[in-house]
Design a protein around this nucleic acid. Structure first.
Lengths: 341, 341
DNA sequence: GGAAATTTTACAATCGATTGTAAAATCGCT
DNA sequence: AGCGATTTTACAATCGATTGTAAAATTTCC
C-alpha cells in the first residue's frame, strides 16, 4: 500500500506548520500568496489528496445525501435517480443509494444505516407496506432534512415532491368515460400509499361526476407487476359482464394486462379501452399505443434534490414547501374509440 | 441541533473508560459480560449512534464502494445498479454512485472525487469516448480494486465482467443469414468501446463464414439513441438497394428504427428482418417482437459487486479472474421468416 | 492468608484536518 | 532606530473511535 501524503508531510517539506498548509490549500486569507503557491505546488508534486474522513470528522459533516427508494430498476425510478445524481453531484455532495425492495423492514434498516453514516439529508420514496414513519423519527428529531418524493407521507417537518395523482386519475377516468366507457375496472396497488389512494379517489370522483356508480367488484388491488397484469386479465375475463374500460395505476401492469386480453381475442380499444400511468418507454411501443399519464421522473429527481440542497445550504429557511409537479394526460390509441374526437 | 452521544458520555455515565465502552459495543472478548450488557443498555437508552466518520478515520477505511456508469437511466444500467446495490448492501458497504454522462471528462472528474473520498473499490462501465484510462491510474497505483463491467477496458490489474459480445453478435448474424438475409445492415456505436467492436467483429465473422462480403456502406455508426434509430431508418430507405436484414447493437435504437421503417411501408420481417441487443422490456412488447440477445443486467451487477467484495475481503487473492457471463439469442417474430424453422 | 495466574479495565497515543489564539515577523512612519 | 500597526505563521486543542500495553482487580490454589 502506497503511503498517503498528509498536510504534515507537506509542512515538513516546506518547513512550515501544518495549520498553514491546511489554510493555504483552501485559499484562506490568512496565508501569504507566495506561501500559498509553494504549498499548492508541493501538494501537487507530492501527490497529496485531502483526507475527507479526517476533514469530515473535524467538520462534523459527511457531505453525503442519502436516497432510499423501493426499487432502482424501474424506468421511472432510474430517471428519478439520474435527476437526483445530477443535482447532488453538481452541488458537490455524494449520494448513498439503497433500495427497500418494497418492504418497510428493509426501509427501516436502510434508514438506520443512513443515520449512522451521518447523511446530511435523506430523500425517500416509501415502500408498498410502510404504514408509519417511526423509523424516520430520528432524522426529524435531529433536524436532518427529510424529503419525500412520489410515494410521500404527510408530516409537518417533511417537504414532499409529487404530482397531483387525484387530478390525473380523474382526468384519465373522465377521458375513458368520454370515450363511452361505462364499466371501468381500476387496477391499483396498496391503498395505503397515497399515490394509489389518490388515484383511486380521482377515479371514483370522475365516475361520480358522470353519474356512474362505483362498483367495488371492478377494483383490483395487486402489486402492479407484470405478472399481476396477466392475473388481472384472467380476473377480468371471468367477470360476468365484461368491463369496457380499464384504468391501471402503472404502465407495466397495464401493458401485460392489455396484451393478455388481446391474446384472448378482446379488441382494444373497441371492446375494452385501456389507460395506464407513468408513460414508460413501453407505452408508445405497445400496440395499440397506451394512453397514460406522463410525468417525468428525471424532473422529479431534480426537484427533490434541489430542494434538499437548498435546505442544506440554509437550514433556517423553514418554508419547506411541498412541490407539486406537472403531469399530463397523453391520449393514444389504446383508449381512442371515436377517432373524430 | 441535538447533542450526539459519544462513547465518552457512556463512559462517564458508567464510570468506565471509553476504551472499554468501545470494546464492549463491538463484543470484544476483553470485556466482561456484565459490563458489556451495561454498556449496550446505556448506549441504547442514551440514544447513542456510532460515528462512522471517527471510526473510518481511525480505521483508515471508508466502507464505501464507488460506481461510475455512463447513465443511470437505461433499463439495462438500472438493473445493473440494482444488482450492485443488493450485494454491496448485504456486505455492509455503502455505494457512491455517479454518472459520466458518456463523456470521458466527467468520468475523470468523478473518478477523482471517488479517489478523494477514499472509496475502497471502484466499479466502472466506461463512457462512449473514453480512449484511455489514465484517469484511473491513481487507483491502480494505490492498489484500490478497480473492476470494469460491460464497457470494459483491458488492463492487467483490472478484472472485467462482460459477456461474449463477439459470440453473441456472430450468433445473431448467423441467425439472420439462416433466415435468408444477404444484405445485413449493422448499426452500432463508437467502435472504440470493445462491446461494440466485438459485436462488429462477430457480425463480420458470421458474414465471412457464409461467404458474404462485408460491405462497409452497410455499417452505420451512431450513438444508438432512439433518435439515431429514426435517422438510421432514413439512411436505410435511401440506400440504392434495400437491405434485407438489420442487426442493431441495442434494442432502443433497433426498435425506433424498425418502427420508422414500418411506418414507411416496409414489412418486418418479410422485407427486412430485425435483431437487437439487450432484451429491453420493450423488445417483447413492440410488434413484431424483437429478436435480441438477452443478458441480464441484474446478474452482471451482482457479479461485479461480488467480485469487488471478494477482493476487498482478501486483497492478496491476486487471481483476479475476469468473468464472462452467459448471454443467449432470443428469437422473436422480427426476424422469423420461415415459421417452420 | 498470600503469591501467582488470570481476568478486567484504564491510560494514552493515533488517525488527519481544522481553527482560535498567541507569538513572531514584517512593514510603515516619525 | 524604535514603536505601533499589520501581516504571517505556529501552537495546541479538538473531532470520536480504536488499540497496544500497563495497571488494577479478581480468582485460584497451596
Amino acid at each position: 500500500m502506497m503511503k498517503e501524503i498528509t498536510i504534515y508531510d507537506i509542512a515538513d517539506k516546506l518547513k512550515i506548520s501544518a495549520a498553514t498548509v491546511s489554510r493555504g490549500l483552501k485559499d484562506h486569507p490568512l496565508v501569504n500568496h507566495k506561501t500559498k503557491k509553494l504549498i499548492v505546488d508541493a501538494a501537487e508534486e507530492m501527490g497529496y489528496r485531502s483526507n475527507y474522513m479526517a476533514s469530515n470528522l473535524r467538520n462534523q459533516k459527511s457531505n453525503v445525501i442519502g436516497v432510499i427508494v423501493p426499487r432502482l430498476n424501474s424506468s421511472f425510478m432510474s430517471d428519478v435517480i439520474a435527476g437526483i445524481e445530477k443535482v447532488v453531484n453538481d452541488a458537490n455532495y455524494n449520494l448513498f443509494i439503497s433500495q427497500s425492495l418494497e418492504t418497510m423492514k428493509k426501509e427501516a434498516s436502510n434508514a438506520k444505516a443512513m443515520l449512522n453514516n451521518r447523511v446530511e439529508g435523506l430523500l425517500v420514496s416509501l415502500a408498498y407496506d410502510t404504514a408509519d414513519i417511526a423509523h424516520f423519527e430520528p432524522f426529524i428529531k435531529r433536524k436532518i432534512p427529510l424529503v419525500f418524493f412520489d410515494r410521500v407521507f404527510e408530516h409537518a417537518a417533511c417537504p414532499q415532491i409529487y404530482i397531483d395523482n387525484y387530478k390525473a386519475a380523474r382526468e384519465v377516468t373522465t377521458h375513458l368515460i368520454d370515450q363511452g366507457c361505462k364499466r371501468i375496472v381500476h387496477i391499483t396497488a396498496n391503498l395505503l400509499r397515497s399515490v394509489y389512494s389518490e388515484r383511486f379517489n380521482g377515479y371514483k370522483k370522475a365516475l361520480e361526476e358522470h353519474q356512474l356508480e362505483f362498483d367495488d367488484s371492478l377494483l383490483i388491488v395487486n402489486d402492479l407487476s407484470s405478472q399481476a397484469g396477466v392475473a388481472a386479465a384472467g380476473q377480468i375475463l371471468k367477470m360476468p359482464v365484461l368491463p369496457d374500460g380499464v384504468f391501471v395505476a402503472n404502465d407495466l401492469c397495464a401493458i401485460s394486462c392489455m396484451q393478455t386480453l388481446k391474446k384472448h381475442g378482446i379488441n382494444i380499444p373497441q371492446d375494452i379501452a385501456f389507460a395506464g400511468f407513468n408513460n414508460d418507454p413501453t407505452a408508445c411501443v405497445v400496440e395499440p399505443n397506451l394512453t397514460t399519464i406522463n410525468y417525468k421522473g428525471y424532473e422529479m429527481g431534480e426537484a427533490a434534490a434541489k430542494l434538499m440542497v437548498a435546505h442544506l445550504n440554509n437550514y433556517d429557511v423553514k418554508q419547506m414547501h411541498s412541490v407539486v409537479l406537472r403531469s399530463e394526460l397523453i391520449i393514444r390509441e389504446s383508449s381512442l374509440r371515436n377517432k373524430s374526437s
